[in-house]
């Protein structure tokens, strides 16, 4: 179950987060805390506010109200320091197509590190991310989406950040790649990494997450322990939450 550190700090914490885009209330007081070694899946339909929440955690967006903290650092007050504790895998991992997977990893890791990582360590990160050895030195323009996603994971692994954010990580991945991704995430969580994953893939979320939050209209409607519900039950809960809120709205 979720836990804070000895000082009462949570690796990832959202308190009363509100964000409005013109007439649309994207976040309406989101409260969320994710503990060390926990993998939290934020489920929700399109426009529920998942990506907005991630963008605020990344420091890309300023909330209208509320606080976002990464490793006890207020993201709005010190976004650079907050980002140092963060690894991020976007929905579409875009890399430099003329560099190989290994070269992209060295480049992106190099951006945030004062010293270059040894070649063996870089290869180790790619291996952990599940990329086949033969692909390491192939240029990325020959990669599938799943392979790029794995390089994205390797970049996140190489960063050795205590918190990892993923935006729709299984979107567009074939079942095998999605399975491998889930294995990687489980490994990371086992090593104490805090993971927040925005998704609408109920099946994958149930497989990998230790907690699932159902976000609708910018508010956390329900939290579910995936170990205690079956796939069908989770789907019913999700649809009920969505229909209930959308029904009320209409």
């Amino acid at each position: 179950m979720a836990a804070s550190d000895a000082g009462g700090h949570w690796p990832l914490e959202l308190i009363g987060l509100r964000k409005r885009f013109g007439p649309v209330q994207a976040l309406a007081g989101l409260d969320l805390r994710v503990g060390a070694g926990e993998c939290y899946a934020l489920l929700g339909p399109n426009g529920a506010g998942k990506t907005t929440a991630l963008n605020i955690l990344l420091g890309f967006l300023q909330p209208d109200a509320g606080t976002a903290r990464i490793a006890a650092v207020d993201v709005q007050a010190d976004p650079d320091r907050a980002r140092r504790n963060l690894a991020y895998i976007p929905e579409q991992v875009q890399l430099y197509p003329r560099l190989s997977g290994l070269e992209n990893l060295a480049y992106f890791h190099g951006l945030g590190a004062s010293e270059a990582m040894a070649d063996a360590s870089l290869r180790d990160c790619l291996r952990q991310a599940g990329l086949a050895d033969a692909a390491y030195e192939r240029r990325v323009h020959t990669y599938s989406k799943g392979m790029r996603q794995k390089v994205g994971i390797a970049i996140a692994l190489a960063r050795r950040a205590p918190v990892m954010l993923l935006d729709e990580p299984t979107s567009g991945l074939d079942p095998e790649a999605a399975f491998e991704l889930n294995n990687s995430l489980r490994d990371l969580a086992a090593r104490g990494v805090t993971i927040l994953m925005a998704t609408h893939d109920l099946f994958r979320a149930r497989e990998v997450a230790s907690r699932i939050g159902i976000l609708v209209a910018g508010r956390l409607q329900q939290e579910v322990d995936p170990a205690s519900v079956g796939g069908a039950e989770l789907e019913s809960l999700y649809l009920a939450a969505v229909r209930d809120l959308l029904g009320r709205a209409s």
């Binding site: 990344l58 890309f60 980002r83 875009q94 951006l111």
Partner: peptide, 13 residues
């Protein structure tokens, strides 16, 4: 091209 978010997270400034 969509590379900037990853760059921004890695690099900060």
């Amino acid at each position: 091209s969509g590379i900037l978010p990853l760059l921004a997270v890695q690099r900060g400034r």
